[in-house]
């Protein structure tokens, strides 16, 4: 087994533990705020998705680099009937 500098890190200090706890709480609050903001874009997002589905049937979808292919109407996916269908933050 090889050993690394990281393996010799001293136990986390009380100050570092408190800092981590404080920043974890702040991040949790930030995450909830982001979810709320992004969920609030749903009407716009529905429009963006509709536009995207049109573009890939006319101009095409990027397959690799600038190579595109036209997606046929029968290939267009349908929105699934499930609670997380509109979810984009995970």
């Amino acid at each position: 087994m090889s050993k690394n500098v990281q393996d010799e890190k001293p136990a986390r200090s009380e100050e570092a533990t408190a800092w981590l706890k404080q920043e974890a709480l702040a991040q949790e609050a930030r995450y909830k705020k982001i979810v709320k903001e992004i969920d609030g874009l749903q009407d716009k997002r529905d429009g963006w998705i509709a536009e995207f589905l049109q573009i890939i049937q006319t101009k095409g979808v990027n397959v690799s680099g600038d190579l595109r292919r036209i997606v046929t109407k029968d290939e267009i996916p349908e929105k699934p009937d499930r609670p997380d269908a509109d979810r984009v933050i995970w």
């Binding site: 998705i49 995207f52 589905l53 890939i56 979808v61 990027n62 397959v63 690799s64 997606v71 290939e75 996916p77 929105k79 699934p80 997380d84 269908a85 979810r87 995970w90």
Partner: peptide, 10 residues
């Protein structure tokens, strides 16, 4: 991984 399904989940 490229695709065109706007509703796929992780």
């Amino acid at each position: 991984y490229f695709h065109f399904n706007p509703w796929s989940n992780p």
